[in-house]
Design a protein around this nucleic acid. Structure first.
Length: 249
DNA sequence: AACTCCCACAACCGCGAACCT
DNA sequence: GAGGTTCGCGGTTGTGGGAGT
């Protein structure tokens, strides 16, 4: 099928966004929403392609984003989800309120992958590196590899719980998703699972999260002024944060 | 102080899927 | 059903800042 380029290369600005551009984009979306990303830059007076605007909004400007390092709970969840889903960052991000696929992907590549390697765990297969050589012994996954690792995962959220299902390799685990999984993970594997993990929503600073973010000056606009708009566009927001089963457009 | 290297993260690119006509 | 358009995803690259020499 023929594909038009997403934007006219001529006259389209690339690279880092300026504060002025952010302001224009936010102002436009707050006022009008984004019925069609392709039209947004033109209507907002930006010399960017629609794709760039969408990315900027979803990864950086969206008011429901939680920024900063992942908590221990979130990090462990990312590892578990990656063991099951692989590099399906959008699916993983959908389970982590306020996190974006791009953010998780970056964190995985920069922090988590290295951390796993330091622990002697293959970040791709989630199995112990020294056990991979011998197929018979390759029964262990990330969360069971050693006492020290188990200790490190003793965050307030999981209390050091080492799930019974994690002594399967990823392939086995995904093929048998269901019976052996703990209830939480069972729920996660459902495609239409609502965003759960109340634990995450209740993390310190997450209550009245937008207000806290705005107070900290992390968003370039007044949160209070956005609330009304956010309510008006609630259905859009839900779709945008990963409720994949909502109808598109 | 100047230079180089490394790291983290924002942004881009290309592709496939979904949707529309 | 075919062709065209738009969106979203995942991989990759570019860039700025900090650390090290």
């Amino acid at each position: 099928m023929g594909r038009r380029p997403c934007c006219d290369k001529l006259g389209v600005k690339k690279g880092p966004w300026s504060a002025e551009e952010d302001e224009k984009l936010v102002g436009f979306i707050l006022a009008n929403g984004h019925c069609c990303w392709r039209a947004v830059p033109k209507l907002a007076g930006l010399l960017r392609c629609g794709k760039s605007c969408r990315l900027r909004w979803t990864n950086y400007l969206r008011p429901d984003l939680r920024r900063g390092l992942l908590s221990d709970v979130e990090e462990q969840l990312v590892i578990d989800l990656h063991a099951r889903l692989g590099n399906r960052w959008s699916k993983i991000a959908a389970m982590l309120p306020g996190r974006t696929d791009n953010e998780i992907k970056n964190l995985w590549n920069t922090h988590i992958k290295k951390k796993l390697l330091r622990r002697g765990i293959d970040p791709v297969t989630h199995q112990l590196l020294d056990r991979q050589a011998s197929p018979v012994a390759s029964q262990s996954t990330v969360t069971t590899d050693s006492k020290s690792d188990a200790d490190q995962f003793q965050s307030p959220g999981n209390q050091g719980h080492i799930p019974s299902w994690d002594n399967k390799n990823p392939a086995e685990a995904s093929s048998s998703a269901g019976s052996a999984d703990p209830p939480l993970m069972n729920c996660l594997w459902e495609d239409d699972a609502p965003v759960l993990l109340e634990e995450l929503w209740q993390l310190p600073g997450n209550e009245d999260n937008y207000g806290a973010i705005a107070a900290a000056g992390q968003v370039p606009w007044d949160y209070e002024g956005c609330c009304e708009w956010l309510l008006d566009y609630q259905d859009f927001e839900e779709g945008d944060v990963g409720s994949e089963n909502l109808p598109r457009r």
